[in-house]
Amino acid sequence: MTRKRFVTLTLVPAIGLLATLALVSIAGAVWFAVMNRTLRSPDYDFVGAYNFLRLLRDRRFFNALEISAIWEAVTVAGTLALAVFLAVLIFETVKKPLYRNLICFAFLVPVLLPRVAAAFIWRFLYSPSLGVLNYLCGLVGIGPVEFLADPSLALISVAAVDIWQWGLFFSVILLKLLETLPRDPIEAAMLDNARTWEIHAFVTLPMLRGPLISLALVKAVESLRSFDLIFVMTGGGPGTATETLDLYAYQMGINMGGRISYASAMSLLLLVVTTVAFTIIWKAGKKWAS
């Protein structure tokens, strides 16, 4: 077998399949977005930009857009902040390799949990009548706190679960990266009587700039997959307080009367925005990180 044939044989099936599936879903979304297809009837007509124009007048759509943006910002920033804090804390306080490994194993567990399972675990803890967290709140004299039913708390409560899963995971990665750093700059800073937090803020973390940016990008992409967690924990409620774009598109397209075309228009907008934004950010981030 020649090299050229080997390349063709290995690459064409895999990439061909991916390209076909991606094209079918994008072409399908575009096709349905300019029709008025619903799940109820098989007949449909061309309606042009009608669905997109209606989106512009849909307040629930703009609410979902806002919730999605808040979700992205809170989960990415929260995850990185928690990861940096915990990695430095463990790096400075826990010196024994055995203890460190124990912590690393414990910290890897949450991210492996299925989102549905994590959602149930925390709904159980958050529960106002029988949850442990409200029992603890009761001990210090507050509560019962409606973590998931209070519109001003619900989004933060769900985001906390996401940060719990990913922040602990990223802190393991950061801890391992801190361990691989050369000791010389750190010791030089110590000779200059730098405080511990100063060493990390001005020496070690700047040295890890590249990986930190990569982690932020990975988290930003993963945060788009918030559907499972929110769907099980609040279902978008109370009201529309935790309804992100994918939840709204799901409710429109499948749950409420199956308005496929309207949901297609919405998911198409979401697709274009995320793909363009992430392509630009990813390429810029890679350049900046290296």
């Binding site: 991606a22 879903s25 788009l224 774009l245 499948i254 496929i260 998911s267 697709l271 995320t274 793909t275």
Partner: peptide
């Protein structure tokens, strides 16, 4: 870049 695609953008066309 397939990882950037929101799952709901795959799900809705595919259901039909």
């Amino acid at each position: 870049s397939l990882r950037f695609m929101p799952p709901v953008a795959i799900a809705i066309p595919f259901i039909v």
